[in-house]
């Protein structure tokens, strides 16, 4: 290796000599402006290019030998047929690897155990809820607020319609307030401050056969689409 370096060094030397002969011209240019100095630098690099094929030629005879470790072996030229069989093998391996990867990705989407609360659940009897209050006890487990006003009970989604943070119910201020970007919602779910573009969504709420409230989170009702007038979006008490 050291010998090679030495050789290359010697090869470069005449080039350096060329540079120094070119320099007087460049000096004149560079005195004018530093931008032209850069162009001049480019010029310096250019003469190097023709050298590349030279080096290749010199290295030519040694190229047949591929070195592995200390010794070296002769590489047999690959025949056309064996090349195709290698190509087939490579493609099969590639397809198999990619297939396995995407198969595992797909499997990942269907976990064995799902730590999610049920989408449909019973939330006690209507009389459990006081009139005019927001019930926050189901927020952590099921992700709903249940609100009872004088005539209705409805279930509000706890997902802010701006970017999906979880707002907090501020009892003193009588509003839901999102800690991420400051969106505010009234008790009814209507957005009135901050950037939230839509009111909070309501979930399907009905009475089960045993008289308990049944909430179905898979069905949502959006105010801006006029769905809050749907009889399933509230419970008359």
């Amino acid at each position: 290796m050291d010998d090679q370096k030495h050789l290359e060094h010697e090869q470069n030397k005449p080039e350096d000599a060329e540079r120094s002969t070119e320099n007087p011209e460049e000096m004149k240019q560079s005195e004018e402006n530093s931008t032209e100095m850069k162009i001049a630098e480019k010029k310096e690099i250019e003469p190097k290019k023709p050298e590349v094929p030279k080096k290749k030629l010199e290295k030519g005879p040694t190229k047949k030998r591929a070195s592995i470790g200390k010794g070296s072996i002769l590489v047999e030229p690959i025949k056309r047929r064996s090349f195709f069989s290698w190509l087939t093998l490579a493609w099969v391996a590639f397809t198999a690897a990619t297939g396995t990867f995407f198969g595992m990705m797909l499997r990942f989407m269907f976990p064995n155990v799902l730590f999610e609360p049920k989408q449909t659940f019973k939330a006690g009897y209507p009389d459990d809820y006081t009139i005019g209050e927001v019930t926050t006890s189901l927020k952590e487990k099921y992700g709903v607020w249940i609100i009872r006003d004088t005539e209705h009970i409805y279930a509000l989604s706890v997902v802010c319609t701006h970017l999906g943070c979880t707002p907090n119910w501020l009892q003193n201020e009588r509003k839901f307030k999102c800690p991420c970007h400051g969106s505010g919602f009234r008790k009814s779910g209507i957005n009135f401050e901050g950037p939230a573009p839509r009111p909070l969504e309501r979930y399907k709420i009905v009475l089960a056969d045993d008289g308990q409230i049944l909430i179905d989170k898979t069905k949502k009702f959006a105010y801006e689409k006029g769905q809050w007038s749907d009889s399933e979006s509230y419970l008359v008490v």
Binding site: K139, E140, G143, V158, C165, T166, P167, N168, C178, P179, C180
Partner: peptide, 10 residues
């Protein structure tokens, strides 16, 4: 992390 509890301010 808890999806139903955003820190305040987040």
């Amino acid at each position: 992390a808890n999806p139903t509890l955003s820190p305040n301010p987040a």
